[in-house]
Design a protein around this nucleic acid. Sequence first.
DNA 1: AGATATCTGTAGTGTTCGCTACAGATGTGG
DNA 2: CCACATCTGTAGCGAACACTACAGATATCT
Lengths: 199, 199
Amino acid sequence: MGMGRPRAFDADAALERAMDVFWRHGYEGATIAQLTEAMSINPPSLYAAFGSKEGLLKAALDRYTEKRDAWMDKVLDAPTAHQVAERFLMEHADAQTDPANPPGCLLVQGGLACGTGSENVPFELAARRTRTEDQLRERFVRAKAERDLGDSADPATLARYLSAVTSGMCVMASSGADRNALREIAAVSLKAFAEQAKA
Amino acid sequence: MGMGRPRAFDADAALERAMDVFWRHGYEGATIAQLTEAMSINPPSLYAAFGSKEGLLKAALDRYTEKRDAWMDKVLDAPTAHQVAERFLMEHADAQTDPANPPGCLLVQGGLACGTGSENVPFELAARRTRTEDQLRERFVRAKAERDLGDSADPATLARYLSAVTSGMCVMASSGADRNALREIAAVSLKAFAEQAKA
DNA sequence: AGATATCTGTAGTGTTCGCTACAGATGTGG
DNA sequence: CCACATCTGTAGCGAACACTACAGATATCT
């Protein structure tokens, strides 16, 4: 028995296009017609490969998370907690205003509040954001063990603070804030971090 | 000639209900059916009073902004820039986790990225957020004139920073962060503000 | 009271949504 | 070369969407 006709499109390249549409219009604002056109495929191919609109989003999020993890590895590899925070904040400022992508971040612009039937989407996005926060926290726990953070510094609070600031930068990017504006925010936040870190 | 049958519902009360629906589901996630049911009116009454779904949102935003302005007046009346920042941050933490409202803030959860045909909505929300930032900046300009802020402190940067942090808190609230979590973020941010303010 | 103007509720309108049935195309395994 | 399995493109499905035509109700103004 045969193995069937092979797929005529590159799933990863298609996901990259889908990511852009979800990012620019949000999950609910993105239509199947826009997605299929951006992906250069027809609806049946989309549904055969990804199951549903939500399945496509999850696949796009998986791909996004994969790339983000590689990026986070570099960030977390910085020798000190302060440098971790600096890289995290500054590179976020750059990425969120990179003209190659829509403004902000897929995990925020994708949809904070959705309609009935899509309640799972904000939840899914939140879980991925929390993952980044967890990675930061664990890194700061290590930093504390290495005496790189003060005794009264709380890794969870520091991680949550950085997560909140970068999320806020997403909202600012959505309002049209440019790279310099986000970098200024990052710079102020970094000083706050330093202040907390040495406590 | 007569003046016609009078409206049988209270427009302000209806807007309050509409606000809640937009807040909880976002602009695109909110359906006319949900809105009319929450407002206890029928579609023709909605369209006679507000023109369209987007018109209803703008009316709800106007009402939201009105209440927010009254609140901001109180915040801006604090004697020092530091106390302005403290009230702004802490009361945001409380408001965004007030069980009387959906989590976060209408100006963020309402929709950062929308579909084709609703491009105006994120723009409208952004304009209202910018308004708050402008109010803060002007207050800090005054504070600087009063020698309440250091010479190298930049009112625009400080205002943008506070705006970013509260927007970030909205995202955290959407992820399920509770009041204490947001207050911790506010506390760290306040120290950053103090550091910048005395510079 | 009568004419007029506006609101209200019922019951839809056309359009777009996410999704799929189907037939033809294109590969693999025997 | 043939049977089979899977993909592709066309064309369209039912449902839900934002919105409205219409008729009856209820007010004001003369």
